[in-house]
């Protein structure tokens, strides 16, 4: 059985974790940077990079100590090599390169999105390829067919904002604080989703893609009228997101030979009403629904170590000259989505 150390530093979480290929999590160290960024209302890349540089090595030491191990006990060292904020990615990747070189262990450069995409297999040993994955985070909103490690078909993507981005911007507009996802979900629980008329962008459209920019703008306009409670806007926004996701996923399911499981991953998968909708949709299609526990949905080192374990099992390792990638699509062959630009 292989033991993999995984490092994550692509946004505002610094993390190190050790995972064994039999799905045992041996340790899991994580330091959030919310306090560093709160005053700015969002993640500032240079501040994030500075914090990663300060925190990464101590977290590796913690992960090793918590697992009762030294580097000699580890079989390979995995790190997020992109996509993400490049200054932070470089800190984690260079740390992993140095650990790998000094200990004589192989380096595994992990696509952060593959970390999310494979994390459901860590907690569900019965989840086999292929599966349909909804990847929803602050930077992405994609529907993917996961055929295997490193093998993805992107079926749909957002043509503008990521769904997590829409949550963060809505939180900022409504003054709900940072990070926005949990803040909007909490406020929404206290509001009435029928009180504020908001659009459902691309609902019913004869294309598979997602769109959330217009919804965010409608939230801004609704808030500026002064006639709605913040909680009602939050609830109506969240319901509009759910309606859009439901409609768009159903569009794709109607047109493909659906795999046996519908899987959700990424930070927005921590949103409970969205999970509930997906669970119902899967059930109505006779699909199994798999969602990682909430803590595994947001960025962490465990999913990077696990993706490293999956790649290591296939003999996939990387050189010390691996170049960090700010953009790194899971399906580089996907046709461009109309108007999607670089986010596709």
């Amino acid at each position: 059985m292989a033991i993999i150390l995984g490092l994550e530093s692509s946004c505002d979480e610094t993390a190190a974790a050790i995972v064994r290929s039999d799905r045992t999590i041996l340790s899991h160290a994580l330091a959030g940077q919310e306090d560093h960024h709160r005053a700015f209302g969002g993640v500032v890349p240079e501040i994030a990079a500075r914090a990663h540089a300060e925190l990464m090595t101590p977290l590796v030491e913690t992960a090793l100590a918590d697992a009762g191990m030294t580097l000699h006990d580890v079989d390979a060292i995995a790190a997020t090599a992109g996509p993400g904020l490049i200054g932070g990615v470089m800190v984690g990747l260079v740390t992993a390169k140095a650990l790998a070189m000094a200990s004589g262990k192989p380096l595994i450069a992990v696509n952060h999105l593959e970390g999310h995409a494979l994390s459901p297999r860590l907690v569900d040993a019965d989840l086999s390829f292929p599966y349909l994955l909804l990847l929803v985070s602050g930077g992405h909103c994609q529907l993917l067919r996961v055929n295997g490690v490193g093998d993805y078909n992107r079926l749909a993507t957002t043509i503008d904002d990521a769904v997590g981005e829409a949550f963060d911007k809505t939180a900022k507009i409504l003054g709900l604080g940072f990070p926005g996802g949990p803040a909007v979900e909490r406020a929404a629980a206290l509001g009435n989703a029928k009180n504020v008329p908001l659009p459902r962008p691309l609902k019913g459209a004869d294309e598979p893609h997602f769109s959330f920019a217009g919804l965010k703008s409608a939230v801004l306009r609704a808030h500026e009228t002064g006639q709605y409670k913040v909680e009602d806007i939050a609830a109506s926004f969240q319901q509009a997101v759910i309606d859009c996701l439901y409609d768009r996923i159903r569009y794709t399911l109607d047109r493909i030979d659906a795999p046996a499981a519908l899987v959700v991953a990424g930070g927005v998968a921590a949103n409970v009403p969205i999970r509930n909708m997906l669970e119902g949709l899967a059930a109505s299609r006779g699909m199994r629904f798999v969602a990682p526990p909430l803590w595994l949905c947001t960025d962490n080192g465990v999913m990077i170590a696990w993706a490293g374990a999956e790649r290591f099992a296939m003999g996939l390792t990387d050189g010390l000259d691996f170049v960090a990638r700010p953009r790194w699509p899971l399906d580089p062959n996907a046709a461009p989505a109309r108007g999607a630009g670089v986010k596709a």
Partner: peptide
């Protein structure tokens, strides 16, 4: 600077 310090600290940890 970050690349150098991150590598140095990681080598220090490993060795």
């Amino acid at each position: 600077i970050r690349v150098g310090v991150a590598a140095a600290k990681a080598l220090g940890l490993a060795w």
